[in-house]
């Protein structure tokens, strides 16, 4: 079946892209100037110590061999050993943080998608009113703001200067149940939500307007269906479809968005771990995290493409 074949090809392409991305990650962290051993030991290290560490890190072997070994280890779930602090296995360093970040992204998605779709559809219904105009300006302004600016404004408003209702720092206690620490999630989730919201609002506003002008909506109205039912059964489902790809792309953006937002709130996830690893030049952790983030990003974008193909009849049947 050509459709299945096409989708399979896209998935394979995704894996190929990711493979080359892993080569790029490895090259950047190995081939570029800057000696990892010297970076770890500092400028005053003796040549003997440097030589020992280089051997320990396997830096004396050819690059291709090292890359193959690295990829082999990854496929077994071994991400190497962190160079910083207690030299724990990378999997141990990032395991919990991976879960925390996953939680953060899922929460942000669950809040932002329905909220922004609702706002988008509502402003479309109220098209060309004052409310719509205000919302348009608000989303345009919000979409211009970098996420850390949104986060800092929220901290100023809600946890330091104006109100003091939320903690400005989200340092989760890993030994206590997260349900009791829900207040720590609010500001990071809010920041990510406000960052992805404007685009989805605009998408849904545009698609709803298009649907509302269609003949089947006029038909439903002429039939005498009550307006809420027209909205629920006819406009909303049809308006959501063209917005799915853009929405999924915004969720993929979260893979990068968490880096700054987690750092800002000291949230213990992989985003803040990446920032720490870059400051410490902790190469094994940098490699693992950038690969994980790239994989998430690639596959969420891929999912967006595939969903679009599946739900668009023209593409579904038009596939040769």
């Amino acid at each position: 079946m050509p459709l299945a074949k096409h989708i399979l090809w896209r998935v394979i392409l995704g894996f190929i892209t990711l493979f080359f991305a892993s080569v790029l990650i490895f090259m950047m962290t190995n081939l570029l100037p800057g000696d990892p051993a010297r970076a770890i030991l500092g400028p005053r290290a003796t040549p003997e110590k440097l030589a020992i560490l280089r051997e320990e890190l396997g830096l004396d072997r050819p690059v291709a061999v090292r890359y193959a070994a690295w990829l082999g280890d990854i496929s077994h779930g071994d991400l190497g050993t962190s160079l910083a602090g207690m030299q724990q296995p990378v999997t141990k360093v990032i395991g919990r943080r991976l879960y925390n970040s996953f939680l953060l992204v899922v929460l942000a998605a669950f809040v932002s998608v329905p909220l922004s779709m609702g706002i988008g559809a509502y402003t479309a219904l109220k098209r060309d009113t004052k409310l719509d105009a205000t919302a348009t300006i608000a989303t345009l302004t919000l979409s211009a703001l970098p996420e850390f600016v949104i986060g800092i404004v929220l901290i100023l408003l809600l946890s330091t200067q104006v109100l003091h209702i939320l903690p400005p720092i989200s340092r989760l206690d890993p030994f206590a149940p997260y349900l009791g620490q829900l207040d720590l999630f609010i500001l990071p989730v809010m920041t990510l939500t406000l960052a992805v919201l404007p685009y989805i609002v605009r998408l849904l506003r545009a698609s709803t307007i298009e649907v509302l002008e269609s003949e089947y909506i006029s038909m439903a109205r002429l039939k005498g269906l009550p307006e809420p039912l027209v909205m629920r059964r006819h406009s909303l489902p049809n308006a959501v479809v063209p917005a799915i790809q853009g929405t999924a792309m915004q969720l993929a953006w979260l893979a990068g968005g968490i880096v700054v937002v987690e750092y800002l709130f000291a949230y213990p996830g992989i985003g803040s771990a990446l920032v720490d690893a870059v400051s410490n030049r902790d190469y094994p952790v940098i490699q693992a995290l950038s690969l994980i983030l790239a994989a998430t990003y690639v596959f969420l974008n891929l999912a967006a493409d595939i969903l679009t193909i599946l739900i668009t009849p023209r593409l579904r049947t038009g596939m040769r």
Binding site: F20, W253, A255, G256, V259, S290, L293, Y297, V298
Partner: peptide, 9 residues
């Protein structure tokens, strides 16, 4: 394949 900020980092 990389989120912009991850690539820069």
């Amino acid at each position: 394949a990389f989120p912009h900020i991850v690539f820069v980092l």
